[in-house]
């Protein structure tokens, strides 16, 4: 069995790490590079930097943060938000990122996934899906930070992005995001059962038992935590220790 990854998700707005609830009502929680360094030193497996306001400007402005992070962070780095063109992907990789996370552009132009995967390899292309519960066993994909509905069914969309060459899916539950009340385990389970590529689950962790509950319900490959570590409700070490104690394999 593959080891489960514990990823720190760092949402950035105007140079600050921010954290909202349901992806809205953003509040400053710290400096992105300082937090990234702290998580690296406490054993994080990967860091995802998301430009939280990129959608408004149609561009990603995190290059200098990624470049700086490369001084201290020697684990894979992903960057997302405002990635719209092949050149944007190249810029992100040149800054030192290993992967990019794409949402809006993939919805607008699904063939972009295929083009990007051909040029950079599937392992570089993470498709970010923001899902909102819309009825019994149904979720709809949203774009623009959880504001705009797309009409796409999350399960069908997940299968389509896999077909088009996505290497991973980062699945965020808009309903659970920032609530610290636990993951939407049903959502994670149906998506993991529908695809074979790795799923990174994001949104909802407020204590380590939420991560364990998720891993025991759905076959996610990785968990992305934000509030849990930003607000020091727990730490990367503690999450890994608790997972290990339940027999879930992680890198130590």
């Amino acid at each position: 069995m593959n080891k489960k990854r514990v990823i720190a998700r760092v949402d950035v707005k105007n140079e600050f790490v921010i954290k909202g609830i349901h992806l809205e009502g953003l509040r400053k929680v710290g400096d992105p590079n300082e937090l990234a360094k702290k998580y690296y030193e406490s054993g994080v497996d990967e860091i995802i930097f998301m430009d939280a306001v990129a959608a408004y400007y149609d561009r990603n402005s995190l290059s200098h943060i990624i470049e700086k992070a490369c001084d201290d962070v020697f684990v894979p780095i992903a960057v997302g938000g405002g990635i719209r063109t092949i050149e944007d992907v190249q810029t992100a990789l040149n800054s030192g990122a290993d992967k990019v996370a794409i949402n809006t552009k993939a919805v607008q132009d699904p063939e972009f996934i295929e083009r990007a995967a051909k040029v950079f390899g599937s392992q570089c292309i993470v498709i970010s899906i923001d899902a909102k519960h819309v009825g019994d066993g149904k979720w709809e994909a949203y774009v623009d930070n959880g504001r705009e509905p797309t009409g796409l069914d999350v399960i069908e969309w997940a299968q389509k992005v896999e077909q088009l060459g996505a290497g991973e899916i980062m699945l965020t539950s808009i309903d659970a995001e920032g609530t610290k009340k636990g993951f939407d385990c049903d959502l994670n389970k149906v998506v993991c059962d529908a695809v074979t590529i790795p799923v990174i689950s994001s949104g909802g962790a407020g204590k380590t038992s939420h991560v364990i509950e998720l891993m025991e319900t759905a076959e996610v490959d990785a968990v992305a935590v934000a509030s849990l570590v930003h607000y020091e409700l727990s730490s990367i070490e503690e999450i890994k220790k608790d997972l290990l104690s339940k027999g879930i394999k992680v890198r130590v």
Binding site: N2, K3, D45
Partner: peptide, 11 residues
């Protein structure tokens, strides 16, 4: 059933 290419992970 369980693993695919590319192999992307800690190992």
């Amino acid at each position: 059933a369980h693993e695919k290419l590319p192999h992307v992970n800690w190992n």
